[in-house]
Nucleic acid binder design. Sequence first.
DNA 1: TGGGTGACCATAG
DNA 2: ACTATGGCCACCC
Length: 113
Amino acid sequence: MISNKSDFFNQVFQVVRLIPEGRVTSYGAIANYLGAKSSSRLVGYAMNASHAQKEYVPSHRVVNRNGQLTGKHHFATPYLMQDLLEKENIAVNKDTVVNFKNYFWDPCFEIIL
DNA sequence: TGGGTGACCATAG
DNA sequence: ACTATGGCCACCC
């Protein structure tokens, strides 16, 4: 149980905050963890509002299932997302996380229920 | 109240 | 291998 509130957005934000430094996950994985596996679009939609949250949400650690930085245009600058990832020792090439599988962090598997 | 939208994903051709 | 399409459902007019 991530949050008592049934707020979908809130739950997404909570999960994203749990992503460790130097790791990434996918929209689908988060949606799956929240029990809405087909609603991965909602996760992306939620991230759109992540900047407005009181608590910091490391949305740069969330990429699509191919490891592509599809949301980079929604950051302050298009290169910010890649920049933040590289600061966490995650290599990015052509908008794609190198060795994405290696860094992949699946909430279902990593969070102890 | 209802329809459009989206930082996605899986499947079909 | 690549493109098209449908589903999904919370959110915002």
